[in-house]
Amino acid sequence: MLKFNYTLVLLLIISLQSCSGGSDGGIEPPPQSEDVIPTNLNLSITIVGANANNPNGDGSGMIQCIATATNAVKYGFKFGNNPEQESLNGSFNHTYTEEGTNSYIVTVFAYSSTGNSISVFKNITVYVASSGPQLIWSDEFDVDGAPNTSKWNYDLGDGSGAGQPGAGWGNNEKQFYTDRSDNVKVENGLLKITLKKESYQGYQYTSTRMKTQDKFEFTYGKIEIKAKLPSGGGTWPAFWTLGANIDEGVGWPACGEIDIMEHVGNNEGTIQSAMHTPSSYGNTQNKGSQVVSNVTSAFHIYALEWTQNKMIFSVDGNVHYTYQPNIQDSNTWPFNANQFILINIAMGGNLGGVIDSNFTETTMEIDYVRVYQ
């Protein structure tokens, strides 16, 4: 008969119970790894073409971004409210397209291997050049003294070459044109052309007629002048162009003349534009006008848009005349070649009319002249 070792049996039972499964038993899970948090996030932004003269860039709108961070495995770049864009190496280029000078926010996110992230942002100001016509020539009249001789020269006298009274450039005008500072100068950011009553070279009035002939000539584009006009009965200011081939045997009107702005002091406020071609010149039928208030006391922008088949004339953006002949040939359209710019104040003559007996002096002030293509 076997004898039981009760102590051994009891120990065995306890051992089996401790190894059996249950709600409080089982194998413990391995410990989880700790979260990795990126640190030391830096963002540098280069605006392409930025320098001392162009602090907001060269007009391309492009920026170059570089981000660095400790424990980062990738980066996300966000430009304003646009969707985030990923970069594995922290480098990203972006191009803005809104024209002009504008401010933007650039945000970068640094992500770790465990998906944790931190972010920083920067404010930048970027210049984007206009995709439209570009400024190709201008005079802003920002240097006091005589007008820039690299841009302007003058018609002097009365047009006859001999200073004979009554020649009047073919329009019976009463002034004698000079390049004296009494008649033309740049002062306080303005070109000032002064028409004066004075005895000079057999004439009773002096003025200035300046031009860009042989210095700047162009075909097609937009040209504008910002000016405050002179006042007084008999005054006749003009902003206009002539064909550059006028002195090459072509002559007038075959060279073509474009009167962008003409104003008559005896009809103050009426701005007229006109075309002179072999088909219609002198008292041409090709003209248009509009009435503009305060032209002698405030600045307005007088403009021409010249394309391959039409001319559009405006004041402050308000169009008053379009020249677009149905048949375009040398008689109606000698405007497929260079023209040069003229600015002057005439006195009296065929368009200026009767001169006010009390007239003494008046000045046309010009803020700028600009040409775009």
Rank of each mutant, 00 (worst) to 15 (best):
L16Q: 05
Q17A: 11
S18Q: 13
S18A: 13
S20L: 10
S20I: 11
S20F: 13
G22N: 04
S23A: 03
S23I: 08
D24K: 05
G25V: 02
G25Q: 12
G25E: 01
G26E: 04
G26N: 08
P29V: 00
P31F: 05
P31D: 15
P31K: 11
V36E: 14
I37H: 08
P38C: 04
T39H: 08
T39L: 12
N40C: 05
N40S: 14
T46D: 15
V48I: 11
V48R: 15
G49K: 06
G49L: 01
G49D: 09
A50C: 10
N51D: 15
A52I: 02
A52D: 10
N56G: 00
D58G: 13
G59D: 12
S60H: 03
S60R: 12
G61Q: 08
M62S: 13
M62C: 02
A67R: 10
T68Y: 03
A69G: 06
T70Y: 06
A72L: 06
A72T: 05
A72K: 06
V73A: 11
V73D: 05
K74T: 09
F77W: 07
F77E: 08
K78C: 08
K78V: 07
F79S: 01
F79R: 06
F79V: 00
G80N: 00
S87D: 09
S87V: 00
G90W: 02
S91Q: 11
S91K: 13
F92G: 04
F92I: 04
T95A: 15
Y96E: 12
T97P: 04
T97Y: 10
E99K: 10
S103Q: 14
S103F: 06
Y104E: 13
V108C: 07
V108E: 03
F109E: 14
A110C: 12
A110G: 01
A110M: 04
Y111G: 06
S112E: 08
G115E: 07
N116K: 12
S117A: 14
S117G: 02
I118Q: 05
S119F: 10
S119G: 01
V120P: 03
V120L: 07
F121I: 00
F121C: 04
T125S: 12
T125P: 02
V126R: 01
Y127L: 10
Y127R: 13
V128Y: 13
S130M: 02
S130K: 07
S130C: 02
S131T: 15
G132W: 09
G132N: 10
P133R: 14
Q134P: 02
Q134M: 10
W137Q: 14
W137P: 04
W137A: 11
